[in-house]
């Protein structure tokens, strides 16, 4: 997005369960929300780390999986038509000239809002880097953790490392265009989709790609250009494999990222808030869910829900300074029921 500023009530950073429930609580108060998340899907850790794992501690939901929780929250907030900005990282937070908060994302999207809620969990998901001291010299030149433009890999001697869907998908997609391609994985079993594994094995049997069971042990090359990778094979030998591109897919990890530079009061990587409104040291900027800390904080989804509800009461005052807020229940308020679209 270029130049266009999105004006809204509440910008929510993080589309995990707590960010999603904040949309509900904000919606009941008539506040519009935009959500930003670095992942390509909605749901945060619930969807990325444990979609199939059971959760037993959501009040009145004896059992649901991570993904089911997200699906239910999405259904619950649908009436409020939240806008999602996925695969974008909130990079900057600053005061605009008009007194509102301005949030700028990695994709150049600009929001202006009277209130911002940081619901970023343990931070942004970013690719795990190769833990070799020499890796840094090659990153972005000949070592990559994601594919932006697949054409950039055409005609190259490629090594792909990893055993999940990303590794297998890219091996299969790049194989027809590569000068040579090898897949390196630490054991001869893959958690990628069985269909992809089958196709990869067929290509390996035909000699169209090399499958090497082992772990990357070192990189060779100069001026950022890879010449070879060293692979420690299962039987402890080291093998040298010529290549000029390495794609490493070792899953994602979480880190606080740019939030650390926004002038927020932090305590051990978490954002300090008050327990009345879960507001940070910046007026109008709130932090809820796992990313916030206060005496007695528990990292539970249900705590995040509570924090979202209280946060919205105070956010309302920034968004509608001239309106009075009356506390109502969804059970009895026809006004709220209209907002929910149930009458």
């Amino acid at each position: 997005m270029n130049g266009e500023t999105i004006s809204t009530d509440l910008v929510i950073i993080g589309a995990g369960p707590v960010g999603l429930f904040a949309v509900f609580e904000a919606g009941l108060l008539g506040l519009r929300c935009h959500l930003v998340d670095t992942l390509d899907k909605i749901g945060g850790q619930c969807a990325e780390l444990y979609p199939d794992k059971p959760i037993y501690d959501i009040p009145a939901v004896p059992r649901c999986t991570g993904q089911e929780l997200i699906d239910r929250l999405l259904e619950q907030i649908r009436p409020f038509e939240p806008a999602f900005h996925l695969r974008e990282q909130a990079e900057r937070l600053e005061r605009a000239e008009n007194g509102k908060w301005r949030v700028t994302t990695s994709a150049g999207t600009v929001f202006e809002a009277p209130a911002v809620a940081i619901a970023a969990g343990a931070g942004s998901f970013v690719p795990r880097r190769l833990p070799l001291p020499e890796a840094e010299r090659f990153e972005g030149r000949s070592l990559f953790y994601a594919v932006r433009r697949s054409e950039a890999f055409h005609g190259h001697r490629i090594v792909v490392a990893g055993g999940g869907d990303s590794a297998l998908d890219w091996v299969l997609a790049l194989q027809p265009h590569a000068a040579s391609i090898a897949l390196v994985h630490r054991r001869d079993e893959f958690r990628a989709a069985p269909k992809s594994v089958e196709r990869m094995r067929r290509l390996a049997a035909e000699g169209a790609l090399r499958l090497i069971i082992g772990q990357i042990a070192g990189l060779e090359g100069r001026d950022g250009e890879l010449e070879a990778v060293r692979i420690r094979t299962q039987d402890g030998r080291e093998e040298r494999l010529d290549c000029d591109r390495l794609l490493a897919f070792y899953g994602l990890k979480m880190e606080l990222g740019p939030i650390a530079n926004w002038g927020l009061a932090l305590d051990k990587g978490q954002i300090k808030v008050d327990t009345e409104a879960f507001e940070t040291n910046l007026p109008g900027v709130f932090a809820i869910g796992d990313i916030c800390t206060y005496p007695g904080k528990l990292k539970l989804i249900l705590s995040g829900f509570h924090e979202a509800a209280l946060m919205c009461q105070k956010a309302f005052r920034y968004c509608r300074p001239n309106e009075r807020l009356v506390f109502r229940y969804t059970t009895s308020s026809t006004d709220l029921q209209k907002k929910l679209g149930v009458i």
């Binding site: 795990r128 190769l130 833990p131 990893g162 055993g163 999940g164 994985h185 630490r186 054991r187 079993e189 958690r191 772990q215 070792y250 899953g251």
Partner: peptide, 11 residues
Amino acid sequence: ETLMLDEAFQV
């Protein structure tokens, strides 16, 4: 657990 160890390094 064995599957998750695939995402670790220097296994």
